[in-house]
Design a protein around this nucleic acid. Sequence first.
DNA 1: CGTTCAACCTGGGCGC
DNA 2: TGCGCCCAGGTTGAAC
Length: 304
Amino acid sequence: MPELPEVETMRRGIASIVGRRIALATFPKKTRQTITITPRPRTLAGKLVGRFIVAVHRFGKRIAIEFDGTPNCGKQFQPHWLVIEPRMTGLLLLAEPPTPQHVRLDIRLSQPRQQAGPHVAAPTATGRPSKRDSQLVFWDRRGLGTVRFVDKRGLLAACGPDRLGPDALSITGRDFVARLGRSSRAVKVALLDQKAVAGIGNIYAAEILFHAGVDPRTPCRLLTVDRWKRIASVTRHLLAKAIQCEGSTIGDGTYRTADNRSGQFQLYHRVYGQKGMPCHACNGPIERIVQAQRSTFFCPRCQW
DNA sequence: CGTTCAACCTGGGCGC
DNA sequence: TGCGCCCAGGTTGAAC
């Protein structure tokens, strides 16, 4: 599910956890606990409790919650990161999860540190922080997501330049030419390669190539520099617009923002999921083909 | 290098 | 109602 715009929306949606400490971490296992968690859940829970959150990052389609290295409760900590990959159906929520049985990680946060002076944080109606302010949940219906607790080395291995290319939000035509210019792969398949460019998934690859007017089957090495520039420009602008719209909620509506609202960018989709529908530009039928075992939607008249 | 396939999972939709 | 099949936003590793 989540591609760059959805993951960035998640990141922004949970940014209020910065400055809080983890009070409790549990890994519910009502069903078979198949999700990949390293280290093992019991060990990880122990490592998380007491840690202070200093930042929430996004690397491509991954979230990394950063913990500081200050001493706490007599222990000396190194900086660490909780790297979460939502994969197909993972969500980070400050709201009530859609179903209780697919909660994979349940984090209770300590209360925010009181600010000095008269401008303290607004109290809730009850005078206590609400549950929304104190609980962060990783929910994942299919259970394909992963959760890893890593040190600096591990972060580099999981999210470093050996694993992820330049972020799609700032990709340039020059980046594309350097990384894919001599490749014989179909351009749509190449856009999904996270080592080439980080953050593009199946929905946005289709939408980008529609707006760029490029046939998804085109071998990369046949694209001119101007066309790569066009693809890069469309990528930056389309993803920025999708973030403004808080991502795309499609199909069964699994994707939600951290406070449980739908994304809106699906209203702007032009080809994804629209096989047989008339193209917005030429009225011809949108086609669906399969590339690398995944659906590709495009307009054969507008994309060449 | 590249592609293809299977695997990891749950659940919605469809045809019969 | 139920069964069987296909489909789904992602990633990885094996085989060729």
